[in-house]
Every structure is written in structure tokens, then in C-alpha cells.
Computed example of a mutant assay.
Amino acid sequence: MKDYFKQLLEKSNIKLEDSKIDILLEYLRLLTEKNKVMNLTAIREEKEILEKHFIDSLLLSELFLHTDKKIIDIGTGAGFPGLVLAVVFPEKDFLLVDSVRKKVAFIDETAEILGLTNVKTSYERAEDLIKNSRSSFDVGLCRGVANLRIILEYMIPFLKTDGRFLPQKLNENEISESGNALKVLNSKILKIHRFRLPESDDERIIIEIQKLKETDSQYPRKTGIPAKKPL
């Protein structure tokens, strides 16, 4: 499996030290074992997990800046992309958030086994977590959890001014309808990055969004409202 993972990395132009590859493969082992008794990912086959979860997460690594120190990943599930990136960037601090407590417990257990001291977790909903975390993070991450204009309302308030949100999407369909949300939340799209997964050739989109100035304290609105009445 290590040789296959290295092939995927090479095809994706991602360079990783051998020691980090070994840690990620141990993460893969823990994930596939736990996935037998708990639904962490619908993808079961190890090679497919490596491509569609691990490589997919690692595509973000070239967009990280040296100055990015605090990263939040909302809706992380089994740790994608945040836990993968925490292995690659031990000097950065990651907060991985998911409302499903069993998934958070898996991340906590896995981070401890892997020796990751730069990972913290929360199962609080974003509307509650924001109370003590507003304008605290350099980068926000999210893999396709919700429509872009909904997740913008949850994520942008967590970011510092000039911080960046890097949502991952399967296509650009949601961008055209997110203009009002971007305006209301004082943010803008800097660039749209396009990638192809090395084996399946599936397209992946990363939207680079910058927070321009402080977000009004009324955002995010109460639970359920962003989904029912998107900006």
C-alpha cells in the first residue's frame, strides 16, 4: 500500500517525507478498522480512500502559507481534510469540528495514537463554538458539507481579517449564487483552483476566499436559519 500511496503522491506532485507517509498509512489502518464497526466513510476500499480522502485533502497543502498558524476544519467527519493536514504541518494548530460525537472520539483516539499534539477537537455546533472563537483563525477548511453560501455564514466569522477560507467542492455551480453572502460577510473570492485526482481523474475545486474586514456580530444566525434562509 505504501508504494501505491507514493505513486498517487508523485502523480499529484505532492512531496512528503517518508515518516509522514508512514503516519498517514497508520491513520488509514485505524480508519479502515474502525469503519468496520462504525460508519466513518462510505468508501471502504483502501486504495480509493487514499485517493479520494487522503490525496484530496493533501491538495490543500500547496495553498497554505508560512504565516498560517491556526486552522479550523468544520464538518471534518473522520478527519478530512484537517487530520491529514495536521500530520503534514505539525507546526500549525488545528481545531477539527464535527457535531457527531463518535466521529470526534475517533479523531481524538487517532490523534493520540499518531502522536499529534497540534490537534484539538469540538463537537459543538458552529453557532455555539463561535462565542469564544470569533476572528481567531488564519484558515478555514470545509469539504462539501453544505451549499457554499450557507457554509460561508458559518465559517467567515471564525476567521481573522485577511484570513482565508478554502472550501473544497466538486464543481463551481454554487459560486454564482454566493455573491450576496460574500458581500454581507465582507469577503471575496481571490482565486478558483482546479485539480484532478490522479487515478479516477475526478475534478476537484478549491475556492480561495479572503475575509476583508470584521463580520457583523449577528452572523452566524441561530441554528437552522442559514439553511432555511441563506444569505
Score class of each variant (00 low, 15 high):
S133K: 13
E124M: 15
E124G: 05
G115P: 04
E112Q: 10
L59Y: 02
R149V: 05
A146N: 14
A126L: 06
V104A: 00
L129K: 01
K69W: 05
D128H: 07
H66I: 12
L60Q: 04
K103H: 05
L129S: 01
L95K: 03
L85E: 07
L116D: 04
I74L: 15
T67H: 14
E124A: 13
L85N: 06
N118Q: 12
I150D: 08
V139Y: 09
F165M: 06
K131A: 03
V119W: 01
V100F: 04
A105L: 14
T67N: 15
L85A: 05
F158P: 00
D108M: 13
V87R: 00
L148I: 12
T76R: 05
F94M: 03
D93G: 02
R125M: 10
S136H: 10
C142R: 12
K103N: 05
P81K: 12
S133Y: 13
Y154T: 04
E124N: 13
T67A: 13
F89L: 11
T67W: 11
D98Q: 06
G82S: 15
R143A: 08
V104D: 00
L65E: 15
T110P: 05
T117D: 15
T67Q: 15
I113P: 00
C142N: 15
K160D: 04
T76Q: 12
I156S: 01
F64T: 07
G75C: 12
L148H: 10
F158M: 00
I71D: 11
R143W: 14
D128S: 06
V139S: 11
I107C: 04
A126T: 07
E124T: 07
G163K: 00
Y123M: 10
R164W: 02
L95E: 03
F158I: 01
T67S: 15
S136Y: 09
S135V: 03
D108W: 04
S136C: 07
V100K: 09
M155T: 08
G163T: 04
E62H: 06
Y154G: 03
R164P: 00
G75N: 11
E109H: 08
I150N: 06
T76D: 11
D73I: 09
S122H: 11
E109Y: 07
V145S: 10
G79Y: 07
A86I: 05
K120R: 14
P81Q: 14
D108Q: 15
G82C: 15
T161I: 13
L63H: 03
D98T: 02
V139K: 14
E112V: 04
N147C: 07
L60K: 01
L83F: 06
G75F: 05
M155V: 08
H66F: 13
G77K: 08
V100T: 11
I74S: 09
R125S: 08
I72H: 05
